[in-house]
Deep mutational scan, measured.
Amino acid sequence: SADYSSLTVVQLKDLLTKRNLSVGGLKNEWVQRLIKDDEES
């Protein structure tokens, strides 16, 4: 899986927004959300 934890907050928020995922919570929660989205898609 991609190394989301190395991305900036701005990059992570951009990815979350593009995938229609929530940008609520902490940075590590966003990373988990993106990883989960990868596994489900």
Score class of each variant (00 low, 15 high):
Leu26Ile: 10
Gln32Ser: 11
Gly25Pro: 02
Glu29Phe: 00
Ser1His: 13
Gly25Asp: 07
Ser22Ala: 11
Ser1Asn: 13
Leu34Gly: 01
Thr8Tyr: 00
Val10Leu: 12
Lys18Trp: 01
Glu29His: 07
Leu26Cys: 14
Ser5Arg: 09
Glu29Leu: 00
Asp3Thr: 05
Ser6Leu: 10
Val23Tyr: 08
Ala2Met: 15
Arg19Leu: 06
Leu21Val: 02
Gln32Trp: 01
Leu21Arg: 01
Asn28Gly: 11
Val31Gln: 03
Ser22Glu: 10
Leu26Val: 12
Gly25Arg: 00
Arg33Asn: 06
Leu15Gln: 05
Ile35Phe: 06
Trp30Leu: 15
Lys18Ser: 12
Glu29Ser: 05
Asp37Gln: 11
Lys27Phe: 10
Ser5Met: 13
Ser5Pro: 08
Trp30Phe: 08
Asp14Cys: 09
Ile35Trp: 04
Lys36Ala: 13
Ile35Asn: 06
Asn20Lys: 11
Trp30Asp: 05
Asp38Met: 05
Asp37Gly: 06
Lys36Pro: 03
Val9Lys: 08
Asp38Leu: 07
Asp14Trp: 03
Ser5Tyr: 11
Lys36Gln: 13
Gly25Tyr: 01
Gln32Arg: 06
Ser41Pro: 09
Arg33Trp: 00
Asn20Leu: 07
Val9Arg: 07
Ile35Glu: 10
Lys27Thr: 09
Asn20Glu: 08
Leu16His: 02
Val23Arg: 07
Gln11Val: 08
Val31Met: 06
Lys18His: 09
Val23Leu: 15
Arg33Asp: 05
Gly24Asn: 14
Lys36Glu: 13
Ser41Gln: 14
Val31Cys: 06
Thr8Gln: 05
Asn20Gly: 15
Ile35Tyr: 07
Lys27Trp: 07
Leu26His: 15
Asn20Ile: 03
Val9Thr: 13
Glu39Phe: 12
Lys18Glu: 13
Gly25Met: 01
Val31Glu: 06
Lys13Gln: 11
Ser5Gly: 14
Ser22Asp: 12
Val31Leu: 11
Gln32His: 06
Thr17Leu: 15
Leu21Asn: 03
Lys27Cys: 10
Thr17His: 12
Ile35Asp: 04
Ser6Gln: 13
Val23Gln: 13
Ala2Lys: 13
Ser41Ala: 14
Glu40Met: 13
Gly25Ala: 03
Val31His: 03
Val10Arg: 09
Ser5Leu: 11
Asn20Ser: 09
Leu15Pro: 01
Lys13Ser: 06
Tyr4Thr: 03
Gln32Tyr: 00
Leu16Pro: 00
Trp30Pro: 03
Thr17Asn: 11
Leu34Asn: 00
Val10Tyr: 02
Glu39Ile: 14
Lys18Ala: 11
Leu7Met: 15
Lys27Ala: 08
Leu34His: 00
Asp37Lys: 06
Glu40Cys: 11
Leu16Trp: 00
Leu7Val: 02
Asn20Thr: 01
Ser1Cys: 13
Ile35Arg: 08
Asn28Pro: 14
Glu40Lys: 14
Asn28Cys: 12
Asn20Pro: 01
Lys18Tyr: 03
Glu29Arg: 02
Glu40Ala: 13
Thr8His: 05
Gly25Lys: 01
Leu16Phe: 00
Ser41Tyr: 10
Lys18Thr: 09
Val10Trp: 04
Lys27Val: 13
Gln11Glu: 14
Val31Arg: 00
Ser6Gly: 12
Ser41Trp: 12
Lys36Thr: 10
Asn20Val: 01
Leu15Ile: 10
Asn28Arg: 05
Thr17Arg: 14
Glu39Leu: 13
Lys27Arg: 08
Asn20Trp: 01
Ser6Val: 06
Asp37Val: 03
Tyr4Ala: 05
Ser41Asp: 09
Lys36Trp: 10
Gln11Ser: 02
Lys27Asp: 07
Ser6Cys: 12
Ser41Glu: 09
Lys36Cys: 12
Ser41Phe: 11
Gly24Phe: 01
Trp30Met: 15
Asn20Met: 08
Ser5Ile: 10
Gln32Glu: 14
Ser5Trp: 10
Asp14Thr: 06
Ser22Leu: 06
Lys13Tyr: 08
Lys13Leu: 15
Tyr4Lys: 03
Asp3Leu: 07
Val23Trp: 06
Leu12Glu: 02
Ser1Glu: 13
Leu12Ala: 01
Ala2Thr: 15
Glu40Gly: 09
Ser6Lys: 14
Tyr4His: 03
Lys13Thr: 08
Gln11Asp: 08
Ser6Asn: 13
Leu26Trp: 08
Leu12Asp: 02
Lys27Tyr: 09
Lys27Glu: 11
Ala2Glu: 12
Thr8Ile: 02
Lys27Leu: 13
Ser41Gly: 11
Lys13Trp: 05
Arg33Lys: 06
Asn28Ala: 11
Glu29Met: 02
Leu21Met: 06
Asp37Asn: 11
Leu34Ile: 05
Leu12Met: 05
Asp3His: 09
Leu21Thr: 02
Thr8Val: 05
Tyr4Phe: 03
Gly24Ala: 15
Val23Pro: 07
Glu29Gly: 03
Leu12Phe: 00
Leu16Arg: 01
Ala2Asp: 12
Leu15Arg: 01
Tyr4Val: 03
Glu29Val: 00
Gln11Phe: 02
Thr8Asp: 12
Ser6His: 11
Gly24Val: 14
Gln11Arg: 01
Val9Gln: 12
Ser22Lys: 07
Val23Ala: 09
Leu15Cys: 09
Thr17Lys: 12
Gly24Ser: 15
Thr8Pro: 07
Gln11Met: 08
Val9Tyr: 04
Lys18Asn: 09
Leu16Cys: 06
Leu34Ala: 01
Thr17Trp: 04
Ala2Gln: 14
Ser6Phe: 07
Val23Ile: 12
Leu34Tyr: 01
Tyr4Pro: 03
Thr17Ala: 12
Gln32Ile: 08
Ser41Arg: 15
Asp38Arg: 02
Ser22Tyr: 01
Asp37Ala: 12
Leu15Gly: 02
Ser6Ala: 11
Lys36Asp: 13
Ala2Phe: 15
Val9Phe: 03
Arg33Val: 07
Leu15Val: 05
Val31Trp: 05
Lys27Gly: 06
Asp37Trp: 15
Gly25Cys: 06
Thr8Asn: 10
Asp37Ile: 03
